[in-house]
C-alpha cells in the first residue's frame, strides 16, 4: 500500500446514484442482506438448542418470544431470507460452472430466486395448515 492514496482521497465512481436498478443488481444486494440477516437467525437457532437443554423454564422464555407477533414476523422473514439465499446460492453455484451468465439468463434466474423467496413462506404455512 506504500504510496497509495488513503481511501478518502481515491476517486469514487458515481455508480449508485445514477445506475438504473436492474434485477441482477437487486439479486446481488439481496444475497448479502439476507446473508447478514441469517447470521441473526443462526444465533437464534443456537439459543433455541441451548434453551432446550437448559430446561422448561429457560425454554419458556424462547417459546414466548417465538409465539409473540414479532417472533412470528421474524420467523416469516427468516424463512423468506433462507429461501432467497438458498435459491440465489444455487444460482451462484451454476454461475461457477460458467453456465447461465448471459444477461437474459441471469435476469430470469434472479427473478426466479426472488419469486421463490416470496412463495416459500406461504408454501410452508400452507403445509403446516392444510398438510402433514
Amino acid at each position: 500500500m506504500a504510496g497509495a492514496p488513503s481511501p478518502h482521497d481515491r476517486p469514487i465512481a458515481p455508480h449508485v446514484s445514477i445506475w438504473r436498478w436492474h434485477v441482477t443488481m437487486a439479486s446481488s444486494i439481496l444475497h448479502r442482506v439476507t446473508g447478514v440477516g441469517l447470521y441473526g437467525a443462526a444465533i437464534c437457532l443456537a439459543i433455541w438448542l441451548i434453551a432446550a437443554a437448559l430446561g422448561p423454564e429457560p425454554y419458556g422464555f424462547v417459546d414466548a418470544v417465538l409465539s409473540a407477533w414479532y417472533g412470528q414476523l421474524a420467523m416469516y422473514l427468516v424463512v423468506a431470507s433462507l429461501a432467497y439465499h438458498l435459491a440465489n446460492g444455487i444460482r451462484h453455484l451454476v454461475f461457477d460452472t460458467g453456465a447461465g451468465l448471459t444477461p437474459a439468463d441471469a435476469d430470469t434466474s434472479a427473478w426466479f430466486a426472488i419469486l421463490f423467496a416470496l412463495a416459500a413462506p406461504i408454501g410452508l404455512w400452507a403445509l403446516l395448515t392444510f398438510g402433514g
Binding site: 433455541w48 422448561p56 425454554y59 446460492g89 444455487i90 410452508l124 403445509l127
Partner: peptide
C-alpha cells in the same frame, strides 16, 4: 459448505416446523 447447506437447511426448516409447530418444550425435546 453451501452444497451441504442446500440439503441441511431446507430439511431442518421443514422437519422442525412439522414436528414443533406449537413450539412446546416437549415437542422440541
Amino acid at each position: 459448505t453451501s452444497i451441504a447447506l442446500v440439503l441441511l437447511a431446507p430439511w431442518f426448516v421443514v422437519s422442525v416446523a412439522l414436528a414443533v409447530r406449537d413450539a412446546s418444550y416437549l415437542a422440541a425435546i
